[in-house]
Design a protein around this nucleic acid. Sequence first.
DNA 1: TTTTTTTGCGTATTTTATACACATATATTT
DNA 2: AAATATATGTGTATAAAATACGCAAAAAAA
Lengths: 247, 247
Amino acid sequence: MENYSLEKVQQITDNSQGSNSQYCYKYPHPAVTSDCIIFGYDGINIKVLLIQRGIEPYKGSWAFPGGFMNMNETAEQCARRELEEETGLKNVAVEQFYAFTDVNRDPRERVITIAHYALVRLSEVKGNDDADAAQWFTLDEVPSLAFDHDLILRKAMNKLKERICFEPVGFELLPETFKMSELQNLYEAILGIKFDRRNFYNKMNKLGILTEVEERAKDASRRTPIMYRFNAEKYAELKSKGFRLEF
Amino acid sequence: MENYSLEKVQQITDNSQGSNSQYCYKYPHPAVTSDCIIFGYDGINIKVLLIQRGIEPYKGSWAFPGGFMNMNETAEQCARRELEEETGLKNVAVEQFYAFTDVNRDPRERVITIAHYALVRLSEVKGNDDADAAQWFTLDEVPSLAFDHDLILRKAMNKLKERICFEPVGFELLPETFKMSELQNLYEAILGIKFDRRNFYNKMNKLGILTEVEERAKDASRRTPIMYRFNAEKYAELKSKGFRLEF
DNA sequence: TTTTTTTGCGTATTTTATACACATATATTT
DNA sequence: AAATATATGTGTATAAAATACGCAAAAAAA
């Protein structure tokens, strides 16, 4: 039960006029942050977006975008605000996946973080002025991260693997149109396993969520491949019936 | 980035000697609680454990066990502590599933709650002195709950449905030995669908995680059914190979 | 005894997953 | 221009799994 007894209700004081303004509570409160694990895909490898910390603690270390929650925003709104402030990425559909609450995960004070993840196209973050400190890393290039962000990354990867079996995440990670082999590479990169090309083609075609497009990209391959586009309508149909991708 | 700039680091003041002791921060902090959604099973219906609030707000309303997090405990430790304090349930393996952060979910102040769920045998909570305010409700008996706990319950149920497809939750919900029909009823109650009895038997037997026991319960049925026990060893084998229950 | 209900154990059929063969298009090489 | 290499498109035969359903045994109730 959330039982502040009445006599225990804390006083919240806002002396924000003075220089040593303080917010005071009868009982100690942790600070709360939202972090964003942003996944991208370059056609070969899964990537994550990191920013280099400019201040202590962990100054110079790489970490996930994120920051302290305001009192008038939800954790998700906070995640999206911080993401835009630090990387320039706007209107990203982030999804909460875990709250990290270890007592000593931040050396400054007690801080719990509510971690979110999202999938974006690499092109969306390129050439952004605000993003000079933000940088994509492939998973095997990721250095040792600030705070407990190594742990957070492991948990985010597991979440991504779960998700790809229930929803076609390629929607968000691939360009508008793509080759079947690119889609297969994406699934292989996320799940860490290899598929038979022909069976993958058959399974995807039978699902019916892909639409062929006329456009033919001249890429480095020998035979000009069919380009596809995700069919969001068909996918919505499938999802309403409750389907699951098996791999 | 979690960027308190250095000049902004808040002062944490503990005047706990005085009667109006206050914990003060340079920036406002939300309060943080942990709540527990405890599921049980009576052989027919899924049940949840609720406690009746003795104080405002929502005095008299039913709510999930839970309470404010201490500075020296994780969210999970908090959940387990509050669960024991309020229901007498000890050593329950709770699992975090979502943080609820709506700005106005608590009328007292900004409170975010980290919700956990667990599965227990009904017998474990019976006849506990501390639990006089705690009561089991079947899902269709659950009244309108305090705070945003109606929403929390819906999300917890979805989590339970997901989980039962990856792990044999019967381990925790059923008595030590049980009939196959009880196991089937449990799955049907959680997932809300009916199975063919014979196919369910075949599938479960083929999985190999059930062991027959000699004990024969004389129940109200016509033919004396075989009693089973979960084989944790076989299950661990299966799990290490990565399996999934399909329904 | 007969009937009713729940249980145990099976099998035929359909559906899905898997392994693998072969032809085609195009850049590169000869 | 012909041969080669490589990625592509489209199949099919087989194995595995999911599904539907038949039938008899055990025990309480009629």
